[in-house]
Nucleic acid binder design. Structure first.
Lengths: 162, 162
DNA sequence: AAATAAAGCGCAATGTGCTTGCTAATTTTC
DNA sequence: GAAAATTAGCAAGCACATTGCGCTTTATTT
């Protein structure tokens, strides 16, 4: 549970992570075959990776189009004052909105936050922006971009550096 | 496998999706309890949601800091010419780089692509930008921002609109 | 409104896969 | 190079997922 430094990972651990990041549905049996291990040590390694906090959680990815959520927006947001109170209030408020999938505090003179928002269509986006984002105290500048095509949409980390 | 219109989803289906998008590790047994169903119909519903393509895939989320991947960058990229060949070449090339977690073709006059990149540190980022991104044919403008804090980092879709 | 058709739930049983203890082998350390 | 520690593999016990089936509930039709 601590945020301490890197745990030692051998080649098999990396293989396990590589497989699981892309195929979270894999049974332990199939995973063990792919990494060249028998089921029991494979299961133990996965558990160790979970306990070490390297494996954070498992999630299920849904199809937004099939759920009627066709519009994804990237919004760059600037704040009027860079005080902790402003930031805290913004972050607390943004956390209340399920439409916000990602929110990062970023560097750069153009914006303080970058958020990714998923909504059904442009009407809902407009409503979201006006009634939710621009209403938050301290939001001074907003610049919207819309996703035309998802070229890459992954959660996988590059494990080649380890 | 088709991209046809929305399948009808009742309240229980939505509950299942709501649980699974946040807790992909849930056993069918525990899921069934949470949505107020016995295991068998719950399993059948999940399978139906998979077959309908609403459940796309399961993934495992890893801890980047523990893996020594401390730097996340948001890069806005402009292209010199807006021709299909340019776009195709860029997208093909970017797909080769495991550091790129997301890549979206977006609207806006400032940029054509927004990509999210994960690397160990600033040195590696610099190298990545110079040797990989700016080398791609047609890349004319690049603007980098760096993630200072991950306020929200989720893959969950807002299911309240259904 | 009554009857029929359709869809979905729950129970039970079967089969598969996960997990834990233990022994042997491999790797690491001094 | 020897001892100690870590880790793989085997086997067994156990838990869970899944499939068939009868029944209830909902939807449809006349």
């Amino acid at each position: 549970m601590n945020n301490e430094k890197l745990v030692k990972l051998d080649r098999i651990d990396r293989k396990i992570l590589e497989e699981l990041q892309r195929h979270g549905e894999l049974s332990n049996q199939e995973l063990s075959e792919r990494v060249g291990l028998s089921p029991s040590p494979c299961s133990r390694r996965v558990k160790a990776l979970e306990d070490a906090g390297i494996i954070v959680r498992r999630v299920t990815i849904l199809d937004h189009k099939k759920l009627g959520l066709a519009l994804t927006a990237i919004i760059l947001i600037g704040m009027d004052r860079h005080t902790p109170e402003r930031f805290e209030a913004f972050e607390r408020q943004v956390g209340e909105y399920p439409e916000v999938q990602e929110c990062y505090l970023i560097t750069g003179q153009d914006a303080d936050y970058m958020i990714k928002v998923v909504v059904p269509d442009m009407d809902h986006y407009h409503e979201f922006l006006l009634n939710k984002i621009t209403r938050i105290q301290g939001v001074s500048g907003v610049h919207s971009s819309f996703v035309l095509r998802r070229v890459i949409d992954s959660t996988a980390l590059p494990l080649g550096y380890l």
